[in-house]
Structures are given as structure tokens and as C-alpha cells.
């Protein structure tokens, strides 16, 4: 089986400082991988390198493209990479404001990716937008409201709808539940889990919330100071942490 995403010895430096280094991973179709670690451990740097927002200094990120199989996204041309990022990839930002157009209605936000891939039928775009708003539990009568009129949880759900509307195969998520209260978080996680299963999505989720990865991720990667210090199945890593830092991380979670 070909991996959907294959990362080999990826490194990114900020001057003399390490962003992340020596990262290798294989992500298979339908698999969800969690990346956990403390702030400054290089999780977001890694995610941004994978999604093409940052150019890594070393290494390869190979994606299984529909047309030509595995291609290195670092060396492919920018138009090709941007094409991927609005069709086969999706990126869910921590702050919905970074991923949404705040001065465009909800329907326009969802429709933008469709129009970017040359959908030119207003009625069809709108139907698709209504369908997707429904899937993320936003009622149809909110379709012409701007995201500024939405609550934080709704904005985040709208961002997810906007990203998934073109049927991507790989979703990058950067702290998707950050800044939301726990009950909203729970519903969002529920929603994400069902969407991931329904659409057979592959996802890479960066978070520092272990509950999120416990629920969503099949496999887990623990990072510290730019290095990967432990990988394995989620339950295995969380229930039987081997590295001292992972043990600290797992034991730091408050038990209610």
C-alpha cells in the first residue's frame, strides 16, 4: 500500500535555532496521526512545512497525487502546490479568523473553494454550501450571515465545512479545538470524528490536548525541542509512555 504522505528527514531551522529536525513519517489513507508536545516543540513548524506554508531546509515531503503518484511537494512548482492545497488538502487553523474570510457570508466562505476549482453555477454552489453547513450543524437560515455574527464554535465548524467541501484527502489541523469551551470542544470532536470516518479522511492533528488525540488519532508522535522523541499507536503511547518527557506529559493531565 502506498502511503498518502511520506516525510523523510525533514528539517527546518530558524537561523541557528531548530524549528524541527530529523522528522520522518508515513501516513496511510484513512489514518489520523496526532502530533503532541509542549509549546515551542516544533509541532506547528512541522505542520506548516507539511502543508507547504513553510519551505523546509532539508528533507522531502512526498504526497500521493491523483495523477502521478508520489511527488515531492517541496520541489514541485508553486502552482501545483497551491492547486493541491485547494483541492486535495485542507488546513484547519486554530483561530477560525485565520482560515475564514470574515467579511464574506458563510455561504461565500464555503463556496470559495468550489469557485476556485471553476464551479460557475450559482445554484449548485449554494446547494452544496447549504448541504455542508447542515453537515457541520449550522442551520440553513444562517447561510447569508457573516462569520463575525457567529460564535467561536460555529466559526470553527464553518471553517471545517469550508475546508472539506472540495472533498480533500488530507486534512491538516492546528489545534482545532483550541480556545473553545469543553462542551463545544466535545461536540466539535464528535463532528470531526464522524466526518473523518465518513469521508475516509487522512489527517494530521497538531495539539497539546491529549484528550483530542485520544479520541481522534490512530497514531501519535511526541515532539520535544524540535525532535520526535516517541511514536506509536495512540493508546500504546498514552497508556505506556516510554520516554521521560512523554511520561511527564501524560501525568500532567488533570484528572477530574
Amino acid at each position: 500500500m502506498t502511503p498518502l504522505l511520506q516525510v523523510e528527514n525533514l528539517a527546518k531551522f530558524y537561523g541557528p535555532r531548530i524549528g524541527c529536525t530529523d522528522v520522518s513519517l508515513d501516513l496511510y489513507p484513512g489514518e489520523v496521526m496526532g502530533i503532541v508536545g509542549e509549546s515551542g516543540s516544533g509541532k506547528s513548524t512541522l505542520l506548516n512545512c507539511l502543508a507547504g506554508h513553510l519551505t523546509p531546509d532539508r528533507g522531502a515531503v512526498r504526497f500521493d497525487t491523483r495523477a502521478d503518484g508520489l511527488r515531492d511537494t517541496v520541489t514541485m512548482s508553486e502552482p501545483e502546490r497551491r492547486m493541491l492545497s485547494r483541492t486535495d488538502w485542507a488546513f484547519v487553523h486554530q483561530h477560525a479568523r485565520d482560515g475564514l474570510r470574515m467579511n464574506v457570508s458563510a455561504g461565500g466562505n464555503v463556496g470559495e473553494r468550489l469557485m476556485a476549482v471553476n464551479a460557475r453555477h450559482y445554484g449548485a454552489i449554494r446547494d452544496e454550501a447549504i448541504d455542508w453547513l447542515g453537515r457541520v450543524e449550522i442551520t440553513e437560515d444562517r447561510i447569508d450571515d457573516r462569520p463575525t455574527a457567529f460564535s467561536g464554535g460555529m466559526q470553527q465548524r464553518l471553517q471545517i465545512a469550508r475546508n472539506l467541501v472540495t472533498g480533500p484527502r488530507l486534512v491538516f489541523m492546528d489545534e482545532p479545538t483550541g480556545g473553545l469551551d469543553v462542551s463545544v470542544q466535545a461536540r466539535l470532536l464528535d463532528l470531526l470524528r464522524s466526518l473523518v470516518r465518513e469521508m475516509n479522511l487522512s489527517a494530521i492533528i497538531v495539539t497539546h490536548d491529549l484528550a483530542v488525540v485520544r479520541l481522534l488519532a490512530d497514531r501519535l508522535m511526541v515532539m520535544k525541542d524540535g525532535h520526535v522523541i516517541e511514536t506509536g499507536l495512540t493508546d500504546q503511547v498514552l497508556d505506556d509512555p516510554q520516554h521521560a518527557y512523554t511520561q511527564l506529559l501524560v501525568s500532567s493531565v488533570l484528572q477530574v
Binding site: E78, P79, R82, R86, R101, V104, S105, G107, G108, G111, E112, R113, M115, A116, V117, N118, R120, Y122, I125, R126, I143, D144
Partner: peptide
């Protein structure tokens, strides 16, 4: 330069929806 003009239609979409 990359001929990404989807955004232009977003404006027209907003027009029709409003």
C-alpha cells in the same frame, strides 16, 4: 500570476446572495 481567480466569483456570489 497563478491565475487563481476564484475569489472574484466570491464577490459576485455575495452580490447574488444579498
Amino acid at each position: 500570476s497563478l491565475e487563481e481567480y476564484g475569489l472574484m466569483h466570491v464577490k459576485l456570489y455575495e452580490d447574488i446572495s444579498q
